[in-house]
C-alpha cells in the first residue's frame, strides 16, 4: 500500500489549479479530501504523475446563506453537517453529510470531491439530484453551472470537462410545505450506500403533492432520478397508499450492480423499500 512516485502541488487559487491542470494534462489528478484517491494510489490502481492539492484553496471553502445555500467545493462533510445555515435551511444535506463513513472520513472528505469523483455508492449525489442543486465549475474556458440532472453521466464519470474544477454547489433553502429525507442501507464495511434514496417533496396547501424529486444511489453504476415514482406521486394525496404505490415504481428502469454484499435482486427490492421510507419521511417533514 505504497503509492508510485508523484509530483505534488498546492496551488493558492482556482486559477492556479486550472493552470497546473492545463500544464500537466492527463498526468494530473486533483486532490481534495483524498478519501477515494489516496486508497487508489496506495493500491496502485491509480498512478498519476502529478497531484494538485486544492484542499487549502481559500475560495473553495465556506458556506454562504442567502436565497440559496452556496457551499464551497472543498468544504468537509463535518463542516456541512454542523453548519447552522445548512441545518436550518437544508437539514437533509446536513443529515446526509453527517452519516457518511465515520468521523475521520467526515473530517477530510469534501462536497466537491464526492461529486467530481461520482462513486456509484457515494451518498451526496442522491441528495444533490433530489434537491436540484447546481454545481458551479471553473475551467480554462471560464465558469459555468452544471445542473444536478446533467452531472452524473456514468460510473465515476461526470459532466466535468477536462481541466475543470468544481468550485461551489448551491442548494435550495427549503420552506413551508417542502420536505426532504435521505434513507440508506449501509454497507457493513465501507459504510457507503448499498442503497441510498434521497427524496424531496413540495405539497399544495391541501396536502396533495405539487412536486417530487427522488434519486437513488448505491444500487447502480450512477446516482439516478426516479421519474416514474415522481410522476406517480405528483398530484396524489401524498398519503401512505400513494407513497407505497409510487415507491413500487422505483428502480424499474435502472441498471444494477451486484457483489458479495448485495445482489442485483436484493438491491432492486431495497430501492423500493428505501424509496418508500425516504418519501414517507419527506412528506411527514413537509407537513411539519
Amino acid at each position: 500500500m505504497i503509492p508510485a512516485a508523484f509530483e505534488y502541488f498546492a496551488p493558492g487559487s482556482v486559477a492556479e489549479a486550472i493552470g497546473l491542470l492545463e500544464q500537466h494534462g492527463d498526468e494530473a489528478k486533483l486532490l481534495a479530501g483524498g478519501h477515494s484517491l489516496l486508497p487508489a494510489l496506495k493500491l496502485r490502481l491509480s498512478q498519476p504523475g502529478v497531484l494538485i492539492d486544492i484542499s487549502r484553496v481559500a475560495e473553495l471553502h465556506g458556506i454562504e446563506a442567502g436565497d440559496r445555500l452556496s457551499i464551497g467545493a472543498a468544504t468537509t462533510y463535518a463542516a456541512i453537517a454542523s453548519d447552522p445555515a445548512v441545518l436550518g435551511g437544508c437539514a437533509v444535506l446536513a443529515e446526509c453529510a453527517g452519516q457518511i463513513g465515520d468521523i475521520q472520513v467526515r473530517n477530510r472528505g469534501t462536497l466537491g470531491g464526492a461529486l467530481a469523483h461520482a462513486d456509484p455508492a457515494a451518498d451526496l449525489p442522491a441528495v444533490v439530484l433530489a434537491l436540484d442543486a447546481a454545481i458551479a465549475v471553473q475551467g480554462p474556458a471560464g465558469a459555468r453551472s452544471i445542473s444536478a440532472d446533467d452531472m452524473f453521466v456514468e460510473m465515476l464519470t461526470t459532466a466535468l470537462e477536462p481541466n475543470e474544477v468544481v468550485t461551489r454547489v448551491t442548494f435550495p433553502v427549503l420552506g413551508a410545505g417542502e420536505g426532504a429525507s435521505y434513507a440508506k442501507l449501509k454497507h457493513p464495511a465501507s459504510r457507503y450506500a448499498i442503497v441510498g434514496v434521497a427524496a424531496y417533496v413540495r405539497l399544495h396547501a391541501d396536502g396533495s403533492v405539487a412536486a417530487a424529486r427522488v434519486a437513488v444511489t448505491g444500487a447502480g453504476p450512477r446516482a439516478e432520478r426516479q421519474h416514474a415514482t415522481e410522476s406517480a406521486l405528483v398530484g396524489s394525496a401524498g398519503d401512505a397508499a400513494a407513497i407505497a404505490a409510487a415507491a413500487e415504481l422505483a428502480g424499474e428502469s435502472m441498471e444494477y450492480l451486484g457483489d458479495i454484499h448485495a445482489s442485483e435482486t436484493y438491491r432492486r427490492a431495497m430501492v423500493k423499500v428505501y424509496t418508500r421510507r425516504a418519501l414517507e419521511q419527506a412528506v411527514a417533514r413537509a407537513r411539519g
Binding site: P39, L43, D102, A189, S190, Y192
Partner: peptide, 16 residues
C-alpha cells in the same frame, strides 16, 4: 480474495 480491504471486510465498530 474478494474481501481484501477494510472497505470490503467488515470488522465491528463501537457503533455497531
Amino acid at each position: 480474495l474478494v474481501t481484501g480491504t477494510l472497505m470490503d471486510y467488515a470488522i465491528p465498530v463501537a457503533s455497531s
